[in-house]
Simulated assay, not measured.
Amino acid sequence: MVDQPTRQITLAQVAQAAGVSPATASRALHGGDRIVGDELRARVVQAARRLRYVPNAHAQALANRARATVGLVMHDVSDPYFAAITRGAMEVAAAHGALVMLGSTFRSPDREIEYVSTFRSQRAQAILIVGSGFSDPDYLDAMRAELFQHRDVGGRYAFVSHHDLPGDAVLPDNAAGGAAVARSLLELGHRRFAVAAGPPTLTTVEHRVAGFVSAIDEAGLPRSAVHVVEREFSENGGRDAAHALVRGGLDATALFCVSDVMAIGALTALREQGVSVPHDLSLIGFDDIPVMRHLCPATSSVRLDLEGMGREAMRLVLGDPSSDELGADGDSVEEAVDPRRVHFPAEVVLRASTTAPTRR
């Protein structure tokens, strides 16, 4: 009779048995930069012995690396939205003496998972995922498995924007921003709207459109007052959406683009079609990347502190000395609570591209 292989005990199981976080269990067993109290260390060691835990060489390598490395995964490195967030994140990484490896997925959920897996195999201590999440259940299951394996060997991770996954996250107020756009346009007198949206499987798109539509509903207007056109979440997508609206007989007096790059594409297409902004159609984007104020006309948007979002996300994933103090029992304060959610407000900034509707 052949003996069945013994199931490998994970660090997460040891941590659960000792009543601590995986990161604390890793420090207690393998060492690290932060000190674990004697009582807590004894509890973890006792649990490891009881479960016959065998230390993982990969986990030890993570704990003993002299210089931290962070794998930063984003949708598109050429997009000013992601460039601004990355700049803020890398400022904090440099202050911590950490190295940052970049990965651009071009909004492919499969490629995002591949990058996380690759950064894990390269023993990055932390992984930061920047950009919209995907609502696909298969993606969520696969990404959750990758991140939990990273966590189980003492790695850390965090998100910028919604990912519908457990973990620390910086969350721009996308739904509230979309609602604020609708209310601003309503106050100007608009009653017929078009929305240039990206794929609805992206949670950022879903939340921004939902916020906009909910504010229109609250104003008592019929759902037919909003015409949503779904295209790529890109400059070309904005161009295609604007062309489709004009070809279909433009009825709206205001166009809301769910990102600034889509608004830039839409502005180009409207100019090509002879549609005057804002005389024929008011236009507003979302994110307020720096170029928006320099377009002709200067284009309205929803302002987010993009660099601030990047800085805060990197603080979450590396640990901010001002908020990651050690507790009396040796465990860190941040690990003793639920995953942290840092919300960033969204503020409508009206410029020359948005005005009261004119009679046509």
Rank of each mutant, 00 (worst) to 15 (best):
T204L: 04
V160M: 05
F344I: 09
A84Y: 01
T86V: 15
G133Y: 00
L72F: 05
R151S: 08
R351L: 07
A328E: 15
L255S: 11
Q4T: 08
A176M: 11
A241K: 06
A83D: 05
M314Q: 11
M1F: 00
R247Q: 12
N236T: 14
D141H: 09
P345G: 05
A263F: 03
A15K: 13
V228R: 13
S214V: 01
A266G: 07
I284Q: 10
Q16Y: 08
M90H: 04
R156S: 03
D3Y: 02
A18N: 10
V349I: 08
A252E: 10
P339E: 13
Q8D: 12
V277C: 11
S21Y: 01
G167A: 05
L306A: 11
I129N: 01
Y157G: 03
D331N: 13
G249E: 10
P5Q: 09
G131A: 08
R50V: 09
A94V: 10
P222I: 07
R223M: 01
M74D: 07
A158M: 00
L350S: 05
R123D: 04
I289Q: 02
A196F: 01
G133I: 01
A252W: 03
H190V: 10
R41K: 15
S135N: 13
V291I: 14
S259Y: 00
S132G: 05
T358M: 08
P297Y: 02
L140V: 06
S323N: 09
M74T: 11
D240Y: 02
S224C: 12
T10I: 10
S78V: 08
G88R: 02
R191G: 11
R191Y: 02
I9S: 02
Q16C: 08
A356D: 03
R247T: 14
R65S: 14
Y53Q: 08
V275C: 00
E232Y: 10
L102N: 09
R341V: 09
G32E: 00
V100L: 12
G189Q: 10
F134W: 05
N64C: 07
F286M: 05
P199F: 00
V44K: 09
R67V: 02
L185C: 10
H30A: 14
L147A: 04
V229D: 11
G238P: 01
E146L: 07
R123K: 12
R7V: 02
V14K: 05
S224L: 04
R41D: 06
L11I: 09
T6R: 15
S323L: 13
T268W: 00
R192S: 15
F119E: 11
L185W: 13
I85E: 06
T69S: 11
P55N: 12
A244D: 15
T201E: 15
Q60W: 09
R341A: 12
R65K: 13
A215H: 11
M262R: 10
P200D: 15
A47Y: 03
A42Y: 03
V160W: 00
A17R: 10
P200H: 08
G310C: 11
G154Q: 08
A142I: 06
E91G: 06
A219M: 04
V45Y: 04
V342T: 14
G274D: 01
P290S: 06
P222E: 12
V116F: 06
H190T: 13
T118Y: 09
I216V: 15
A328M: 06
Q273L: 02
L295K: 09
V100P: 04
M74N: 04
V45P: 07
A42R: 14
R65H: 07
V275E: 09
L283T: 06
M90A: 13
S26L: 02
T358W: 03
L147P: 05
G237T: 13
